[in-house]
Amino acid sequence: MNLTLRIWRQPNADAEGQMVTYQVADVSGDMSFLEMLDILNEDLILRGEEPVAFDHDCREGICGSCGMVINGQAHGPERTTACQLHMRHFADGDVIDIEPWRAGAFPVVKDLVVDRSAFDRIIQAGGYITAPTGTAPDAHAVPVPKPDADTAFENATCIGCGACVAACPNGSAMLFTSAKINHLNVLPQGQPERESRVLNMITTMDEAGFGGCTNTGECAAACPKGIPLASIAKMNREFLRATRKAGR
């Protein structure tokens, strides 16, 4: 199929960006979205032009590196990552808009690449547990109730791609932060930092300049890993609990 792409081109963080139109020919439906961009980039390099910069790593949908807003939707029309989005979901002659994640806390580095170190700072603020060094403990030494294990695992599937922030009309990082907090807060291993984790991670999230949550649900709808909106309610409950305890 032949496609028209309108891609956000921005040479560096300080430059003004703009949408630039490109044509891509002979795209196979079996290609992933990133492979389609590879074809475009090979073509651009042959023509002596600057290739389109975009983040990618595993291309298996598990690393969270890739991410772009395709036709106004984070990761495109399918509920998966851009690398796992296949071109069969598009038709010959389609015009596809490709933009970077847009958030004040995610400044554009170049073209479709954004700086997501705000997420790293949130993780540094509480996304860890206190564990003794030395030999690894027995796997069954700490019993975890099945429902807790399920909740922890559901939230732990977050790959930190940032689609929630990109999709949120307010540029809020509540879904990401809640997934990371809930993942550790429901487990026995996460108990020593249960209160400080939620307080510190939310403070860091706010300081990074993310927006506030207005419960639109756009984040959960865009999340390639299916983190539910209920995670945010659970984080709010943990926050209220920690605030009460901190007051004592």
Partner: peptide, 11 residues
């Protein structure tokens, strides 16, 4: 919320 997204989406 407005300040959290200084650059709007074009599409």
């Amino acid at each position: 919320d407005i300040h959290a997204r200084p650059q709007r989406y074009r599409s």
